[in-house]
Design a protein around this nucleic acid. Sequence first.
DNA 1: ATTAGGG
DNA 2: CCCTAAT
Length: 745
Amino acid sequence: MELQKRLDYGFNGYKLPATPRATRSARKRVPFRKRVEDSQISAFDLLATVAGKLLLDKESTPVSSNTLTADDRSAVEKNIVKEERRDGDQSLKLETCNQDGTDRGFVVSQLVSQANELNYNSRESPSLKNDARFGFTSVVTTSGCSERSNVLKLMNNKIKNETESLPCKVETGPPFMCGTSGDRIKLDSENKGLIREELDRTDKVSVREVADTCPLEDPVVLDGKPPVLVSSGSSGKTHSCGFNNYHSSLPAKRDDVNVVSRDDDEKSSGCTYTGPLKKSFKPAPLIGDRRAKKTLTSKYSKLAPKLEETLSNSDENSKSTYCDRSAYKRLRSERNYPFKKRKFLHYSSVSNSDGGISSEGISNSPEQSNNGNSSGVYPKMCGVIGESPSSADQRKSFHSRDSHVKFRIKSFRVPELFIEIPESATVGSLKRTVMEAVTAVLGGGLRIGVLFQGKKVRDDNKTLLQTGISLDNQMDALGFSLEPNTSQTFPSLCTGGSPMPLPCDTPLPLARYPATPGLVNRVTHDPSPEHHMSNLGNFAESDHDSAPSPTDMSFDKNKTDSKALVAVPAMSVGALDVVPAHRKSKRSEVVQRRIRRPFSVAEVEALVQAVEKLGTGRWRDVKLRAFDNAKHRTYVDLKDKWKTLVHTARISPQQRRGEPVPQELLDRVLTAHAYWSQQQAKQQMKQQQQQQQQQQPDSCLLLYNSTMRAGSRCDAFCFIAPALDPTFFSSALSGFFLWGFPPGL
DNA sequence: ATTAGGG
DNA sequence: CCCTAAT
């Protein structure tokens, strides 16, 4: 093969492949349920992974965006233009470059906030605004960044549906929505016109959008607990709780949204997660209420009280609204998003455990609302910050609930992954590889690193006050990073070496994704590599699509040709195999569903050939013969594939999905299947007859026996046998011979 | 460990 | 692909 070019991909988000499966399993078995939860946790971890930047919600954050001067803006735009030659979503870059610098394209959350801000400040390019937002969203939610173009489209299309999308959002980015929603709201009020238009066009993005938007912020704001209330239901709404007060003007819309969204929400769940999840959720409507409630009661009850308290604290106006909303949300969430909630909880717990962001540091959304100004979310936040007690006071109040340090994590960056893959590798394989790498990293366990004033804060027991993090002027000095758990080892991919030749011939792509330990994302800026973004976006997007669902197939279609594809699976296999194993080791109970690897035409060819030769029912032999090198293809897989091949061959071409299999192969499949089925039938017949004969010796046998004993002639045998079909006859004969009957007969 | 079949 | 039952 040619030189392998190295392509660096950054990951903004990742997808949980296993979840769906797990969910499904959960339905059936209790034990599995637990597993599922764990996996979910990991999902949250992933979100966390995304973690990158944390901003103290003090003044700085909002300000920054607002602060952009015209010059800055123009400069930014220039950059965008420059950097984003291909994709249209300048917005993303814009945000990235300017505001945070930090992001290298990976920063999701930040994008959101920035985007919002941008929208805020400059309406010049609505598209940009949208893009920024959505792009960001897509990143976080899906994991992947969708292609920019797609993103844009989606954005444009979707904005309209924000409300509707909310539900989806919730699912996707569970609880985090708050911050986002707040932003949105703000936007709505301010830029109604623009947004409106955009929204009208909206279609799909909602989920992504939601997820992206909220993810990080909410958790923080809520204080870690929020998840329950906020997360579940309506991402938008939840947030709105905090921010709604400000935006009371928008309300009508919101309500509508909620109402409308229900259906969407349910659906959304499916959207957000992979198919499997969807399935799991389906039942929700029926069982959901009860189940969810139960869950909440037991698990979340603790949290709820707190939340309520918070709410109560808020000022009168906000209070009423807030309460109602919260209640509403809660209901909703319980109903529809048990799964997410769970996740959320886990997530929050995780973050707490990390210590970097302790619950103490988190502020309550309600407070924000109180503080907030009509001006907008950001201003509001600033105000809040300002209000926060001075250091002296803080110390005092710190322990109490009163003084909280508010953090706003605008984005998380996934630890850097390095992937090496041959040029000849298909996009699909790339996606898989990345997915695996990300999964490995995330699944393996991430931890949060806190960077303050350029130093890592390792002492988890220090208070924010002690570290100085609580100081207003220090917010910029605070950064969060997602770090691979040291305990976890990432094996360099086995594949790294030489690709395993498949029976077919194609070379396998190699994947390697060692995670660079401890990537730190600082709040401050770093330039974001432009190409990174685009690559990621595309990649991620596709990955998202392909991952669990049928879309994957279509994806493969685009591959250059079947040959290229063939090798891919095997190659990726090695890597994959490794990853899961690690995963298991780390989270012993988490069972990850194997990634889907559609059979390439070449593989099908090999399979057909082997089956033609060996027949069905000898899958182990088939495996040995044709897929001995494809570690990821088990004989069960081959059997299943054959099954589907037969089915495929029987249905009309229009009904077929995925990479098309040459008709010629399908014909052979049918032929071979028919042949071997017949053989099998015959075989069974024989056996049956033999058994019958043995068990219930019929006249023939009797005769035979008697003959033997008596030593008399066997003529009688001939009479009986003929009545049976040839198969029987032969078997009967063989039986005789086995028994030592004289051949002479 | 394999095979067969349902999901 | 997963999961189970039966070999």
